[in-house]
Amino acid sequence: MSEISHILPLSKPKEGISKTGTWRLKKPVIDHSKCVKCLMCWLHCPESTIDVVESSEKFVEVNYEFCKGCGVCANVCPVKAISMVPEG
C-alpha cells in the first residue's frame, strides 16, 4: 500500500534566510575545557545554531551568523561552560 500518498504538513529544515545574528547584544562564548558534552545547549537553542563538531578542541560550536544572543544555552549549560559576553 506504499502507493498511497497523503498531503502532509512536513518540511525539511535548511539554513535560514534571515540572519538573526545581527540582533545580538551579548554573545555566548564556550569554554571548551569545561564542556561535558551533554548536548543541552544544542537541544535548547531556539535558532538551532549550535552544531555538534566533535573535534579534538571542541565538542559544540556556535554559528554566530544566526545566534541571536538570547542566552538560553548559557542558562541550560549544567557546568556553566558558556558565558554571555557583551558585543563590540
Binding site: H6, L8, P9, L10, S11, K12, P13
Partner: peptide, 14 residues
C-alpha cells in the same frame, strides 16, 4: 505517515 527521529530532522506544521 512519518516518524520523528534524531539524525533526520523534519519540521511538522510550518
Amino acid at each position: 505517515p512519518y516518524t520523528f527521529k534524531s539524525g533526520d530532522p523534519i519540521t511538522m506544521g510550518n
